[in-house]
Structure formats: structure tokens, C-alpha cells
Computed example of a mutant assay.
Amino acid sequence: MDHRLRFAPEILVRLGEELVPHPDLGIMELVRNAYDADAAVCQIQIKNATEEGGNLLVSDDGDGMTAQQLASGFLLIGKSGKADATQTHTRSGRRKVGEKGLGRIAALRLGTKVTVTTRPKSEPGVEHRLTIDWDQVDSSYAVEDVPISIETRQIEHYGSFRHGTVIDVTSLRRGIGTKDAERLARSLLLLTGPFADKGAFQVYCDAPEFSALAELIKPHLFEQYEYRLVASLDEDGEATATLYNWRGEAEFKGRHSEVARQRRGNVPFSVWSRKRHLVSGRM
């Protein structure tokens, strides 16, 4: 008789403790999943979360997931599309930033129950939903003994939710503190950037208990500036840079030969001196 490896639910407990020691790390992982799904907007809702038992809702308008993607990707613990060298970027060209499947499953365990509702962009009019009762999983002999069903239905009225994913985590295992909210705000700013660029990934937060968090991550945090430097590095290591003024007009553009440090000697000193002076302008 053939047998298969099985694992006890205590493994999931260890994953949660070691991979997501603070609630903000779990929330951030769910936001990264929205980014990797090519979402333009991600909405975070936190309610009654200063103590354990609160609710967390993370929704996005990304590509969503098919039933097959839910079963073979989302629910496959430890598997990540980024492990494949051909899957390092999203459909729109974003570099994927989410952790491996282990980080995602630990994030979903922030509460005692999670419901995932997703509407794939590739299947208009279709919605998939699954619910995981972690108390039931934790009380089982082996994780595989608890079946998880994916419900699929046709939808007639889209509302504002045409495609994307909603993750509803209920009965949080521990409260979210002020320090957690501050760390989350810093992490979100690193992902979204401080400037309100058209078409850029934006995160909004509805958290009455953490009003400072919503204020810190609003998209127009740095709408007042004199100069802004935008630089990029392609797959060949070639750099380009553009310097914008406060009106959004490009004052200088430089190719790799003009901005790379090792080639600086080929550029007139007066040009670099002026650029450095402008970049150091006050914000």
C-alpha cells in the first residue's frame, strides 16, 4: 500500500509564529499579493482590532484567481510562482514582491476564520469563494483531514467589484497595537511610494482606531515638492534618470552613459554640478 506524507496542524501554528511574529507583517503580505495581482487599488479595513477578536478586510481590483489557481496555487502551501524564473514579473511588468506560499498561509491565519472571494478578470461574471475555519483545522489530527470547498457561482450584478480579490479575516488572534500600525505605514510607503503618480499602485486604509495610519499612507503625502528624481535600472544593469520640477515637467533626462558613476568622467562637470544642486532642493 502506498502512503503519503502528512503533517499535523501544529506545523501551521509554528509557521504563524515564526513567519508572522507581528500582525503588520501579515497584513503587508496580503497587500503584496494585491500588488502582484496587478491591482491599481488595495483597500484595508480594520475594525475593533486593538484587542483580539477584531476583523481585517483586504480587497483589491487586481486580476483575481480562477478555481484552478486557487486550488493549485493559493492553497498549495510553500509553493510560489516566483520560484519559476519565468514568473518573476506580473502581466503588466511589475516585479513580484510577495513572499512564498508559506508567508501567505501564515497571513491568512491572523484570525480564526478566513473567507476568500475572488472574481477573475479572465472569467467575467464568475465568482469563486472558499472559507477556512482554522479552529477546525487546528483540532484535526492532520491538516489534510479537513476538506476545503471552492464554491463557484455566476454573478449578475457586479457593483464596484468587477474583478479582484477580497480576503476577510475574522476573530483576530491578537490585537493590533500602535507600533504595529506604525510599522505597517512605513512598509506601505516603501511599496507605494510617497508620490501620487498616475496609474501607480495605491493603498487606502479605513481604520477608525488608527487614524494616523490612514493619514500617513494617503497618496498625496508628498504633493508639495520642488524637484523629484525618478531613476530606473533595466535587466542589463543600464540606468536612466529623469529630473522633474514641481510642475511635473522633465528638466533633465539622462541615459546610462550620462548618469552611471563609472562614466561620470565623460559628462561635463557643469552638468553634474547643476543636477546635484537641483536634486538637493528642499522638499
Score class of each variant (00 low, 15 high):
Met1Thr: 09
Asp2Met: 06
Arg4Phe: 03
Arg6Cys: 04
Phe7Ile: 01
Pro9Gly: 02
Ile11Pro: 01
Leu12Gln: 01
Leu12Cys: 01
Leu19Lys: 03
Gly26Val: 03
Ile27Arg: 05
Glu29Phe: 01
Glu29Gln: 13
Tyr35Thr: 08
Ala37Cys: 07
Asp38Ser: 04
Ala40Trp: 07
Ala40Thr: 15
Asn48Trp: 02
Ala49Cys: 03
Thr50Cys: 06
Glu52Ser: 04
Gly54Met: 04
Asn55Pro: 01
Val58His: 09
Asp63Leu: 05
Ala71Asp: 14
Ile77His: 05
Gly81His: 10
Gly81Val: 10
Lys82Asn: 09
Ala83Phe: 09
Thr86Ile: 11
Gln87Ala: 15
Ser92Gln: 14
Gly101Lys: 07
Gly101Gln: 14
Leu102Gln: 13
Arg109Tyr: 00
Gly111Lys: 01
Thr112Leu: 00
Lys113Tyr: 00
Pro120Phe: 01
Lys121Asp: 10
Lys121Asn: 12
Ser122Trp: 03
Gly125Phe: 10
Val126Cys: 10
Arg129Gln: 13
Leu130Asp: 03
Asp133Asn: 14
Trp134Ala: 00
Trp134Val: 00
Asp135Lys: 00
Gln136Asn: 08
Asp138Asn: 13
Ser140Thr: 03
Glu144Ile: 06
Glu144Asp: 12
Asp145Leu: 02
Asp145Lys: 02
Val146Cys: 12
Pro147Gly: 08
Ile148Cys: 14
Ile148Trp: 01
Ser149Phe: 07
Ser149Asn: 13
Ser149Glu: 13
Glu151Ser: 13
Ile155Met: 08
His157Pro: 07
Gly159Ile: 06
His163Gln: 07
Ile167Asn: 11
Ile167Leu: 08
Val169Phe: 00
Gly177Lys: 01
Leu184Val: 08
Ser187Leu: 05
Leu190Cys: 14
Leu190Ile: 10
Leu190Pro: 09
Leu191Arg: 09
Asp197Gln: 13
Lys198Glu: 13
Ala200Lys: 12
Gln202Phe: 05
Cys205Arg: 04
Pro208Gln: 06
Ala214Leu: 03
Glu215His: 07
Leu216Trp: 11
Pro219Trp: 02
Leu221Asn: 06
Glu226Gln: 12
Glu226Gly: 07
Leu229Lys: 02
Val230Arg: 11
Glu235Ala: 05
Glu235Arg: 04
Glu238Ser: 07
Thr240Val: 07
Thr242Pro: 06
Thr242Gly: 08
Leu243Gln: 09
Tyr244Asp: 05
Asn245Met: 03
Glu258Ala: 14
Glu258Asn: 11
Ser270Ala: 14
Val271Gly: 05
Ser273Phe: 02
Gly281Asp: 03
Arg282Trp: 03
